[in-house]
Computed example of a mutant assay.
Amino acid sequence: MSDELVFYTNPMSRGRIVRWMLEEVGAPYRTVVLDYASTMKAPEYLAVNPMGKVPAITHRGVTVTEGAAICAYLADAFPEAGLAPPVGSPARGTYYRWLMFGCGPVEAAVTNKALGVEVPPERRATAGYGCLDDTLNALETAVSGKPYIVGDAFSAADVYVGSQIGWGMMFGSIEKRPAFEAYWAGISQRPAARRASQIDDALIAKAKEDA
């Protein structure tokens, strides 16, 4: 069983979230950049993730896919980084709550908006997120008036949910509420966040040069 941490990604994907998390963790890792049109659907990668999507990681004989799951896994695999509240603490429950809210209601609501899908009022009980406004209102309560989503400590939940807020405001799928802007302005300037962006932006630039 290898201890090598391998990161499968594309710099124009949700893999950017995991890149940030890896930089926060600080452990060495190897990056495998995949192309949407070829290597991401090749048999070699489908053996890693049958969905043929990124991000994914392999570590100590385990394969983890899905951005939120990878962030949670890395926080637990490298506890010395301090990216998750202690197991059993009240803060741990809050951490799970907002991390899963990010990969559940927020992801679904924002994706549907991007696709032009609107749930009719009479069907909102069927949709897990209800409606976009309710989802964003709940998210706003989580980040209003504080630097981090869980108490006074930065965590993997900030990496995942914060990335959604930052990207959503950039692409117009999340409105620029003052609470969102203040929260994102704080966490996006972390050294690990800036390093991660520089790495992926350089990969994008190189791909354009090679095209």
Rank of each mutant, 00 (worst) to 15 (best):
Tyr29Phe: 15
Ala47His: 09
Glu23Trp: 02
Leu22Pro: 02
Ile57Met: 05
Lys53Tyr: 08
Glu44Asp: 15
Ser38His: 10
Leu22Met: 13
Ala27Trp: 04
Val48Gly: 04
Pro55Ala: 12
Val25Glu: 07
His59Asp: 08
Tyr36Ala: 14
Val62Arg: 15
Asn49Gln: 10
Asp35Ile: 09
Ser38Pro: 02
Glu23Val: 05
Val54Pro: 00
Ala68Leu: 02
Thr39Phe: 06
Arg30His: 14
Ile57Val: 10
Lys53Trp: 04
Arg16Lys: 12
Ile57Asn: 00
Gly61Met: 09
Lys41Thr: 08
Val54Thr: 05
Thr31Gly: 05
Glu66Ala: 06
Val48Met: 06
Lys53Phe: 07
Met40Glu: 12
Glu24Ile: 01
Gly61Asp: 14
Val18Tyr: 01
Ala72His: 09
Val18Phe: 02
Val54Ala: 04
His59Arg: 05
Tyr45Asp: 01
Ala72Gly: 11
Pro43Cys: 12
Ile70Lys: 00
Thr39Glu: 09
Val33Gln: 14
Val32Thr: 04
Val54Tyr: 01
Tyr45Thr: 01
Ile70Ser: 00
Thr31Gln: 10
Ala69Thr: 05
Ala69Arg: 02
Ile70Phe: 03
Glu66Trp: 04
Cys71Tyr: 01
Met51Gly: 06
Ala42His: 13
Met51Glu: 10
Ala47Phe: 10
Glu24Tyr: 01
Arg14Asn: 03
Thr65Lys: 05
Val32Asn: 02
Ala27Pro: 03
Pro50Asp: 06
Ala37Thr: 15
Thr65Asn: 11
